[in-house]
C-alpha cells in the first residue's frame, strides 16, 4: 500500500514536469499544424541556460529560470522568423524535416560549444526530502512540479479567458476563416511558437536541479512527449496534461515492476496501438488526424 502510494506520488510528480513540455508541443501542432521535432532542444537550452547562470553567478537555479525563459522566448522568435514561418503551406516533407534539421543543429551546436560532459546543478536543498505520511518526496522535485503545473495552468487561462487566446483558438480551428475575420495569423503563429518553446525552456530550467544536463538530453524526452501528446490528442491542452500525468504514472509503475528498458518498450507499444486504433488520441477531436497532413 505504502509502496503503491509512493509510486503514485513519483509518477504524478514526473508527469507534471512532462506536462509543461507537452502543452507547448500540442499547442504548436494544434495552431501551426507543425510537429516540432526540435521541441526538447529548447528544453535542453533552458537546462544549459540555468546551469550556466547558476555556475557563473551562483544565482539560485529557480531564480535563474526567470532569467533564462525570456531568452529562450527570444530565440524562439528568431527560429519562427527564420524557419517555422517559411514552412507554413509548404510540402509535408518541408514541415517535418525543417524542425528535425533544427533539432540536429541545436543538439550539435550544444555539443560543440559545451562538449558532451555531463553536468549537474546542486543546491543546499538538493537532497532535501519531505516525509509526509511516511512517503518520500524530494523538495526540488516538488518545487519544480508546482511551478510547472502553475505555468501550464497559466497558459490554459490565457488560451481560454483572454481575447488573444480566443484568437489563437480561432486560428487553430480554421486558419482561412480566422484570417478573413481580420486576425493576423502570422502573429498568432509567432507568439504561439515562441511562447510554447519558452515553456519548454522553462521546463528545462526547472528540471536542471533534478537531472543531469548534457547536449543530447532532449532525445530521451522528445519521444516520451510525442507519446503524451498523441495520447492526449494532438492539439488538445487538457488532454496533454492528463496524458502527461498518466505517462508519468506508467513510467514510474512499469519502471518499478519490469525495469526501465522494458517500461520504455511497453509505452512505445501503447503509443503505436493508440496511433493505429485512435489516432485522434483519447481527448482529441475525431478527424484531426485526417486534415493534419494537409
Amino acid at each position: 500500500m505504502q509502496l503503491a502510494l509512493q509510486i503514485l506520488v513519483n509518477g504524478l510528480l514526473l508527469g507534471g514536469l512532462y506536462a509543461l513540455l507537452a502543452v507547448g508541443l500540442t499547442l504548436i501542432f494544434g495552431v501551426l499544424r507543425v510537429v516540432n521535432f526540435a521541441h526538447a532542444e529548447f528544453m535542453m537550452l533552458g537546462m544549459f541556460g540555468v546551469y550556466w547562470v547558476w555556475h557563473l553567478t551562483g544565482l539560485d537555479p529557480y531564480l535563474a529560470v526567470l532569467v533564462v525563459t525570456p531568452l529562450v522566448l527570444l530565440f524562439g522568435i528568431v527560429c519562427d522568423r527564420l524557419i517555422i514561418q517559411r514552412t507554413i503551406g509548404a510540402p509535408e516533407v518541408t514541415v517535418v524535416f525543417a524542425t528535425l534539421g533544427l533539432s540536429i543543429f541545436l543538439q550539435n551546436a550544444a555539443l560543440t560549444l559545451w562538449t558532451a560532459d555531463i553536468r549537474s546543478v546542486t543546491t543546499a536543498y538538493s537532497g532535501m526530502v519531505l516525509t509526509p505520511f511516511g512517503l518520500r518526496v524530494s523538495v526540488p522535485m516538488l518545487i519544480s512540479f508546482t511551478v510547472a503545473m502553475l505555468a501550464a495552468a497559466g497558459l490554459w487561462l490565457v488560451l481560454t479567458r483572454t481575447l488573444y487566446g480566443k484568437a489563437i483558438q480561432a486560428v487553430a480551428q480554421n486558419r482561412e476563416a480566422a484570417a478573413l475575420m481580420g486576425i493576423d495569423v502570422r502573429r498568432i503563429y509567432l507568439w504561439t511558437f515562441s511562447v510554447a518553446v519558452a515553456a519548454a525552456g522553462a521546463m528545462g530550467g526547472l528540471i536542471a536541479p533534478l537531472f543531469t544536463v548534457y547536449p543530447r538530453v532532449g532525445i530521451s524526452y522528445i519521444v516520451t512527449v510525442f507519446v503524451i501528446v498523441v495520447l492526449g490528442g494532438l492539439g488538445s491542452v487538457p488532454g496533454a496534461v492528463l496524458a502527461a500525468l498518466l505517462i508519468g504514472l506508467i513510467e514510474a509503475a512499469a519502471g518499478f515492476l519490469f525495469g526501465a528498458a522494458w517500461a520504455e518498450l511497453s509505452y512505445f507499444l501503447i503509443f503505436l496501438a493508440v496511433l493505429i486504433a485512435r489516432p485522434q488520441g483519447f481527448f482529441g477531436r475525431r478527424g484531426a488526424e485526417v486534415f493534419a497532413g494537409r
Binding site: V35, I276, A292, G293
Partner: peptide
C-alpha cells in the same frame, strides 16, 4: 497495413515509434 490510414505527422510518428521499438529490442 497498420499505418495505412495515418496521414502527415501521424504516419511519421508511427514509423518513428516502430523504429524505436526495434532499437530497444
Amino acid at each position: 497495413a497498420i499505418t495505412l490510414r495515418l496521414r502527415g505527422p501521424f504516419f511519421v510518428l508511427a514509423t518513428l515509434a516502430f523504429g524505436i521499438v526495434v532499437h530497444i529490442a
